[in-house]
C-alpha cells in the first residue's frame, strides 16, 4: 500500500466565518485532482476532525472546482462558538487544514 500523503499532492488554506471553518485542498498538479477527489470524501474529513467537531455539529460539506484542481470542505461548528467566544489557542482554526495534509491517500 502506498504511503503517499495528501500533502505530497496538494496544498491547503483554512478560512473562518462565525463558528464554521472552510478548508481548501488544491492539487499542485491538476492531473492529481481525480485521485484526491476520489479519496478525500466529506466523511473522511469529518472523521479526521471527529474530536474537534463534536456530536452536535452539522455534517461536513464538500464542493469541487475541477478546473482549478481544488476541493473546498466546509466544517460547521468546528470553531465551537466562533472566533469571538472560543477557548481555543487558535480561535480562528487557521492551523486546521495542515492536519489534512498528513492523511495517507490510500487509508480510510
Amino acid at each position: 500500500m502506498s504511503t503517499l500523503t495528501v500533502g505530497e499532492l496538494a496544498h491547503s488554506r483554512t478560512g473562518d466565518k462565525g463558528d464554521t471553518s472552510n478548508i481548501s485542498i488544491i492539487a499542485y498538479d491538476i492531473d492529481d485532482f481525480p485521485r484526491l477527489a476520489a479519496k478525500l470524501s466529506a466523511e473522511r474529513v469529518s472523521a479526521c476532525f471527529a474530536e474537534l467537531l463534536g456530536a452536535d455539529s452539522p455534517p461536513v460539506r464538500r464542493y469541487e472546482l475541477p478546473q482549478l484542481g481544488a476541493l473546498n470542505f466546509v466544517l460547521p461548528g468546528i470553531l465551537r462558538g466562533g472566533v469571538t467566544r472560543s477557548l481555543a489557542l487558535d480561535a480562528h482554526g487557521k492551523a486546521l487544514g495542515a492536519a489534512l495534509l498528513a492523511l495517507r491517500l490510500d487509508e480510510g
Partner: peptide
C-alpha cells in the same frame, strides 16, 4: 486558488450586499 477559496463556503453563492457572486467557474 488558495485566496479564491479563503472564507468561501458554497463557491456558486458567495453572498454580499451587492450580488450573489458565483466563483465556481473561475480560472
Amino acid at each position: 486558488t488558495e485566496q479564491l477559496l479563503y472564507e468561501v463556503h458554497d463557491p456558486t453563492a458567495y453572498l454580499t450586499p451587492d450580488v450573489t457572486a458565483d466563483f465556481s467557474q473561475t480560472r
